[in-house]
């Protein structure tokens, strides 16, 4: 009397085409190489920004370079308010270190660093530490960054053409500009979602 064959364990799900590569720091969570890459991009953005600022003002205190390490520290919290604080400090640094009424072409690489770091933080926050991103997603975000950077190019051309003129803003212009900023903020705050249908 023979026993019927035992049902072998089957696997209807195809194995993943690529081996997953992750890294673990101590007892912390697993980090995918894609997420580590995003952190590297964010760090590079800060470095580029600081480098541009350094060239624009002709040198500054070396303590500022420590800010380049902050994205590494912020790696577990890309979706928090900490990157905002970092970049607020960096913008304030540009404001403090550059003389009033001057213009430098180094603002363009600084803008590139800022938008790259912003996009890296934003993309990193969309996925868990062990998550990755498809090439389609990365290409889409790259396109977005290029488009956003083209706005900086347009602005830098406009500013360069106007730099020889008197850029002092009158009281009316200041009020109009601030009202524009306020209107923009009000728009993003009160834009309600339309009904599903």
């Amino acid at each position: 009397m023979s026993s019927p064959p035992v049902v072998p364990p089957s696997s209807p799900v195809a194995p993943p085409p690529h081996r997953r590569r992750t890294l673990r720091f101590g007892t912390g969570p697993e980090w995918s190489f894609a997420q580590l890459g995003m952190t590297a991009v964010a760090t590079s953005g800060v470095v580029v920004y600081l480098g541009a600022l350094h060239r624009a003002v002709g040198g500054f205190d070396g303590v500022w370079w420590l800010l380049a390490l902050v994205p590494l520290v912020l790696m577990p919290w890309p979706g928090s308010a900490a990157p905002l604080a970092l970049w607020a400090v960096l913008l304030t640094g540009w404001f403090v270190l550059t003389p009033e009424g001057t213009f430098s072409w180094w603002a363009l690489p600084a803008a590139a660093g800022a938008v790259a770091a912003h996009a890296a933080h934003a993309l990193s926050a969309t996925s868990p530490p062990a998550g990755s991103f498809t090439r389609v997603t990365v290409r889409r975000w790259l396109r977005h960054c290029v488009v956003a950077l083209s706005a900086a190019c347009a602005v830098v051309v406009a500013v360069a053409s106007l730099s020889s003129r008197d850029l002092t803003i009158g009281a009316v212009g200041l009020v109009v500009g601030l009202l524009g900023v306020a209107a923009g903020l009000a728009w993003v705050r009160t834009s309600p979602p339309s009904s599903a249908d």
Binding site: L91, E100, A114, A148, V156, L174
Partner: peptide
Amino acid sequence: ALGRRPDLLVIAAPLAVAA
């Protein structure tokens, strides 16, 4: 606008586009 820093306008422009 307040500090007469046109550089900052360049830096803020892509972020404004993103927003």
